[in-house]
Design a binder for these strands. Structure first.
Length: 536
RNA sequence: CUCCCCGUAGUUCAAUGGAUAGAACAACUCCCUUCUAAGGAGUAGAUGUAGGUUCGAUUCCUACCGGGGAGACCA
C-alpha cells in the first residue's frame, strides 16, 4: 500500500523527491500521511502549507477519487490520505489467500546474508547479556528469509587463548578439591558454581586420576561440556546455527597463520617490541592499532578473527552481519577496516551493537561478571520466567537501550506481561473460529464497514510494511510493538463486535476477518519465535 | 584522561527534525445472561540541567550532571 502511495506522490512532485509515507499517529488523521511538502518546501521557496496544498491538489486531480476517498492538508504541512476501503478489502483477501506466506516478499531477490550472533565465550554458561543477541539475530534472520534473502546463521566458538587457560586452571582447582586434595583458587580464575559442576562432569567422564600434565584433556572436555549446555540453552528459545567456527580450528588449519602473512604483504602491519601489530591504513583508525602476533609468537584472538572475517568477506555473500554486545564497540571499527583490505563494500558489513541487560532483584542490581561469578545465567532466567517472556522482553527494546530486567518483577507480573496480552488475542481469535464450526469460504468483505472492523483491517494491512521496515532498518523491536498494537486492536474489536450473529453473510465476513487476525498474529509470533498457545 | 551508549509518566519502554510526546504495568472509576474479564471503556501522570542551530528539537550541536560500557602482547 505504501509503495503505491509513494508512486502517486512521485508523479506529483518528481522522481527524485525525498520523503516518507507513514501511518499517522492517530487513525482519525488518516490511513497514511506524507511529509513530502515539508521536505520540498524550502527548494520550492514556499511555505510548507502552501506547498502541501498544491501537491494535494495535483494528487486529487490525478487520482480522481479512485484510490483515495479523501486527501487533506493538516498541521504544519502534512498531507493525509484516506484510502478507499475497497483497497483494504483487497488486502484482506490477500491475507486469506496467502496465509503464512503473508508479509513475505521477494525484496531480497535471492541475495545472500550471513549473520553472526551470540558467540558467547565457552568459559561459562551464557548469561542474560549474551542472550540478548540471540532473539535479535534470529528474528533478523527470519525477517530476511521472509523477504526473499538466503540466510546463514553462524556462531564463533572461542575455544583458544588465555581465557581458556584460566578456565583450565579453574577446573583443575575444583578437580583437586573433588578428590580431597588441597588446592588454592587460581589468580583470575572463574568464580561461580559451574566450575564445580563442570569438574564433577570431568571426574565422571575421565575418572579421578588425571595428572596435571593431562590438563589439556580437562580443558577440551570442559569447553565442550559448557558449549553443549549453551547450545541447549539457545535451543530453548528456538536458536540453532548453520555454521559454527571454532578459533582452535582457524589456528590448526593454518588459516590464522596464512592471513597474518597476507597482512604483512599488504603492508598493514608493523613490528614493535617484538610483536606484530595491525596498523589500519585509515587515518581515523590510527588509535586502533592492535597486536595480532605476540612477541612469544602466539597469534592473538584478533588474528583468528581476521582470518574468519576474511572468509566472510570473500565467500560471495551480499550482506554480512555481526551482532555483538556493546562491550565490543572498540572492536567493531577494526573489523570495518578489514572490509577494504579484502575488497568488500564496507556498507554491506553491518555491526549491530546492543546494550547490556542489567539484572535486578528488586532494588538490588546484580553485576554481570563471569570472572567474579556474580551473574545470572540465561538458564536460570529461562527457568524462572519461561522462554516466551524472555524473548518478547528482549525484543521489546531498541538495541541502543539499556534494559533493566527485574527478576522479581518479571516473576510476579508474568501473567500481566505484554506477551500474554498478544497470546491471549491469538487464543480468543482461534476460539471464535472453533466455536463457529464453519469451514472458511469466500464472502462479501465489504460488509465489514464499522469503525472497529475497518481499524482492525488497516492494522492487519500494516504487517508487510513492518516486515519491510525491519529488513531495512534492522530494528527488530518494531515487530513486538506491532504485535502489541494488533492485539490491542483485536481486543477492542472483540468487545464491540459480535462475530457469530444471525446474519449469515455478515457472520462469514467477520469470521474471515478473525481468520486474518489469526494468520497475521501467527506470522508475527513466528518471526520472533514466541509460541502460539491453543488455550490460556 | 579519551571514546561509545543511555537519561522521557510511580515503573519498564516507544516516538526517519514534525501534528495533542505514545503504550504496557502500577493507581483510580465503570463494564461479565451472549464467541475465554489473562479483556474492554475512561481518569490522572513525563522529555536530567543550561545554552545554541530553525518555521519547528525528545531527536542535531556545545557544556554540565547522573548511569552503563570500552580503551591491555585479554577475548
Amino acid at each position: 500500500m505504501i509503495k503505491r502511495i509513494e508512486e502517486i506522490i512521485k508523479k506529483a512532485v518528481g522522481e527524485d523527491a525525498v520523503f516518507t509515507v507513514e501511518v499517522p499517529p492517530d487513525q482519525k488523521m488518516g490511513d497514511y500521511m506524507t511529509n513530502v511538502a515539508l521536505r520540498v518546501a524550502s527548494t520550492l521557496k514556499k511555505s510548507p502549507e502552501e506547498a502541501a496544498r498544491e501537491i494535494a491538489e495535483k494528487i486529487i486531480k490525478a487520482d480522481k477519487g479512485k484510490m483515495f476517498s479523501d486527501v487533506s492538508v493538516a498541521g504544519p504541512g502534512f498531507i493525509n490520505f484516506f484510502v478507499n476501503p475497497k483497497f483494504f478489502y483487497e488486502e484482506l483477501s490477500e491475507m486469506l489467500r496467502m496465509g503464512d506466506e503473508y508479509g513475505g516478499s521477494d525484496e531480497g531477490n535471492g541475495k545472500k546474508v550471513r549473520i553472526e550472533y551470540v558467540s558467547a565465550n565457552p568459559t561459562g554458561p551464557i548469561h542474560i547479556g549474551n542472550l540478548r543477541g540471540g532473539p535479535i539475530g534470529e528474528t533478523l534472520a527470519r525477517v530476511f528469509e521472509k523477504s526473499g534473502f538466503k540466510v546463514l546463521r553462524e556462531y564463533v566458538h572461542n575455544d583458544a587463548g588465555t581465557q581458556v587457560e584460566k578456565l583450565g586452571e579453574t577446573l583443575w582447582y575444583w578437580y583437586e578439591k573433588l578428590r580431597g586434595n588441597e588446592a588454592s583458587f587460581p589468580d583470575g580464575g572463574y568464580r561461580g558454581d559451574y566450575g564445580k559442576e563442570v569438574a564433577e562432569a570431568v571426574a565422571e567422564a575421565l575418572g579421578p586420576n588425571l595428572e596435571k600434565s593431562q590438563i589439556s584433556e580437562i580443558i577440551a572436555f570442559g569447553l565442550n561440556h559448557i558449549f553443549e549446555e549453551n547450545k541447549e540453552t539457545l535451543k530453548r528459545i528456538g536458536i540453532t546455527f548453520d555454521k559454527i567456527v571454532s578459533e582452535s580450528n582457524l589456528i590448526s588449519s593454518g588459516a590464522t597463520e596464512e592471513v597474518v602473512s597476507e597482512m604483512k604483504s599488504l603492508n598493514v602491519t608493523k613490528e614493535r617490541d617484538g610483536a606484530l601489530w595491525f596498523v589500519p591504513n585509515d587515518e581515523f583508525l590510527s588509535d586502533r592499532e592492535s597486536v595480532i602476533v605476540r612477541s612469544s609468537g602466539q597469534p592473538t584472538y584478533f588474528a583468528s578473527d581476521i582470518a574468519y572475517h576474511k572468509e566472510k568477506f570473500t565467500s560471495g555473500y551480499d550482506l554480512v552481519f555481526d551482532i555483538f554486545g556493546s562491550n565490543h564497540h572498540g572492536h567493531a571499527p577494526k573489523l570495518q577496516a578489514l572490509t577494504k583490505l579484502f575488497g568488500f563494500n564496507p556498507q554491506n558489513f553491518i555491526v549491530l551493537l546492543y546494550q547490556y541487560v542489567r539484572i535486578k532483584r528488586g532494588d538490588e542490581a546484580v553485576t554481570m561478571s563471569k570472572r567474579a561469578g556474580t551473574y545470572v545465567t540465561a538458564k536460570e532466567v529461562l527457568d524462572e520466567v519461561g522462554p516466551d517472556n524472555v524473548i518478547f522482553f528482549l525484543l521489546m527494546h531498541s538495541l541502543t537501550t539499556h534494559i533493566d530486567f527485574d527478576l522479581d518483577l518479571a516473576k510476579k507480573k508474568s501473567l500481566e506481561n505484554p506477551v500474554y496480552y498478544v497470546q491471549y488475542a491469538y487464543v480468543r481469535a482461534k476460539r471464535i473460529l472453533e466455536e463457529s464450526g464453519m469451514e472458511p469460504m469466500v464472502s462479501d468483505l465489504s460488509l465489514l464497514n464499522t469503525q472497529p472492523e475497518l481499524a482492525l483491517i488497516k492494522k492487519l494491512s500494516n504487517f508487510p510494511e513492518v516486515v519491510s521496515m525491519v529488513c531495512k532498518t534492522y530494528e527488530v523491536h518494531r515487530i513486538t510493538h506491532y504485535a502489541t498494537e494488533l492485539a490491542r486492536e483485536f481486543h477492542s474489536f472483540y468487545e464491540k463486535t459480535r462475530v457469530l450473529v444471525d446474519d449469515k453473510d455478515l457472520s462469514m465476513a467477520r469470521l474471515n476477518l478473525v481468520r486474518s487476525v489469526v494468520i497475521v498474529l501467527a506470522n508475527t509470533l513466528n518471526l520472533i519465535g514466541v509460541s502460539k498457545p491453543e488455550s490460556m
